[in-house]
Write a protein that binds this DNA or RNA. Structure first.
Lengths: 338, 338
DNA sequence: TGGCGCTGTCGAAGCGCTTCGATAGTGTGT
DNA sequence: ACACACTATCGAAGCGCTTCGACAGCGCCA
């Protein structure tokens, strides 16, 4: 591999001139710059990464950490890791994947060894040890997801509350007033990430604001049938359904409606909101407010790059505004039989 | 962050002594080493990664490249990326995730800048430009998957041929002799990765060896029904079925059997072989010879670490022996009605 | 007791880059 | 013609580590 000295010799200038010609940090005469660029081209020069890191105190690397609970579905987080990687690349960073069993070890190591300039934290739990670590570490970090305590850390996430309101509004606009929500399993709502709570609470508040009676049900781990039962007990003439749940449970809910002879969107208008899967994979393609990995990750990387490069003041919590995608599963209610 | 000089001062020795005490590359008196270790502990010292890389000409980083076709299911490859990361960590390496649209750009860059010591190549196609690149690059690389031309490159993959034979043997041992194979869609078989071919050819050869008439069918993109039809046209009294296909098609095949009133394993014994999904997710948990990401990735990383660290001669193609997992979907045939 | 080989430690060089300060060269206003 | 500001370039220092060669101190054998 050629070094900067080789390029300098080839171009008939000094190494520092090559460096400045390539970085643009000092003015270089146009023809000199061109000779340097030609030499670079001819030799196929790329600066050695470690030398550059050492001298510039900048690695151009972002670490991304995904904890490794055996129970969670890995591939879901991996999609986020992928999106972070794409976004980071667009900002000129490479991405280091950290998946240690000890969630903190990788963060600590990549910070202490200056291997990465910043860290993107995925799959954030309500009580996440990595939040404390981030506060202590004095190393740029951005969380995708929001833990309970957000002081001293930087977070990005979909605005689940707004998503809930928008889902309700869409149903109400279609004349639906008996609206239920199928949320996540109770255990998940209580223990893990807190977005199900944010969604549920906004759903309840907003329906109440609109003079409706909120009905929320929690599915079992994989099936929605009992949840649907619960909903129908409270709202026998259910005509709107919000799904903030997994793909499996969503499909199960649709199956449950079909089994009861209830049509979508005729009898029940349905919208999936704050969900990570494309509804086109369901038996009926639903209107959806997606949890868009690319959007969250793009924003997170942008913020992180700003902190690293310009020492920008870190914004606290950044909420991504929801986007409503129409697929025909919400239409005006048929006139009710009198 | 403390430097090696800080540790040296704290321990009352020179920097080189600290280095040797930590690396073990020269003998250090026991009590001196202990003083160094204590100082390291007290200061929380971790060596700066870039300085270490620059001096040692070793990054302790492996790159993993997954090409970014929009059509392919990303999360599947991401599981491999995850397994590579885990295995690499166990060998003391971190993992750089490369997902450039231009599949080669990241490889070229990480090699030329010496950012990574080696590259693990995922999702290898039959004709993969990255194979040519690897030959040209003179940088350690291991492919997970096998392109058509394997000269000059290092590959690891499941032994699909052996898997096919083992699947057939299991069915034959259960007294099944009218055995069909549902492979991948024809287009995939011809254009993309070549393992479907390796599997199919071994299936055909081995059934023929055993005096059976091989029947192979190719599903449509998502459904197996026509393939099943094709199979039954050739083998009306099908009693053994091998699935080397996607989860979706496998489920569709089971549905097809059920729709025809054929029971598993009573009428038809079924085994899924060389498949990346757990058969427990199907409506019937099938005997399976899994395509085990952890096994392939572990082996690949081990080989790569050997090349990087000890300049080991690179083995050409390493085939992972298949493992048969029994789940009761292959049982002896009922006595045939005379 | 002198020479020899070990063992344990140190100093210095060097990895390839960035960046600071110095300086030669150029043009401008007086 | 001279001082002055500016531009373009260079040399050298330094980032924090690894590693090589040197060598002091030691025990051992002759």
């Amino acid at each position: 591999m050629p070094t900067i000295e080789d390029v300098a010799r080839e171009a008939g200038v000094s190494a520092s001139t090559v460096s400045y010609a390539l970085s643009g940090k000092r003015s270089i005469r146009q023809d000199t710059r061109q000779r340097v660029l030609d030499a670079v081209e001819r030799l196929g020069y790329l600066p050695n990464a470690s030398a550059r890191m050492l001298a510039a105190k900048r690695a151009q690397i972002m670490a991304v950490t995904a904890p490794l609970h055996p129970d969670t579905d890995q591939s879901a987080h991996m999609v986020f890791a992928l999106e972070v990687t794409k976004a980071a690349r667009a900002h000129g960073y490479d991405t280091l994947l950290l998946v240690d069993d000890d969630a903190s070890e990788g963060m600590r190591r990549s910070a202490a060894t200056a291997l990465a300039d910043g860290i993107v934290v995925l799959d954030v739990a309500a009580h996440d040890e990595r939040a404390d670590l981030a506060r202590a570490l004095n190393h740029p970090a951005v969380f995708i997801g929001i833990p309970d305590r957000t002081d001293g850390i930087v977070c990005v996430d979909l605005d689940f509350a707004a998503a809930a309101r928008e889902a309700v509004d869409a149903l109400v606009a279609a004349g639906r007033r008996r609206i239920g929500l199928i949320s996540h399993p109770r255990t998940a709502v209580l223990r893990e990430s807190n977005f199900p709570l944010r969604f549920r609470d906004a759903f309840a508040a907003h329906t109440r604001e609109l003079g409706l009676s909120p009905a929320v049900a929690y599915p079992d781990l994989h099936a929605a049938d009992r949840a649907l039962e619960d909903l129908l007990a409270v709202l026998p003439d259910l005509d709107g359904l919000v799904l903030n749940t997994t793909e499996e449970v969503a499909q199960s809910a649709l199956d449950g409606l079909a089994a009861r002879g209830m049509t979508v969107p005729g009898d029940v208008a349905v919208v999936a909101a704050g969900v990570a899967f494309p509804t086109s994979r369901l038996s009926i393609t639903l209107d959806t407010i997606p949890l868009d990995a690319a959007a969250s990750c793009g924003k997170a990387v942008e913020i992180l790059a700003g902190i690293v490069e310009d020492g920008l003041e870190a914004p606290g919590v950044t909420l991504i505004p929801p986007t409503y995608l129409s697929h025909g599963s919400v239409v005006p209610a048929a006139p009710r039989p009198a």
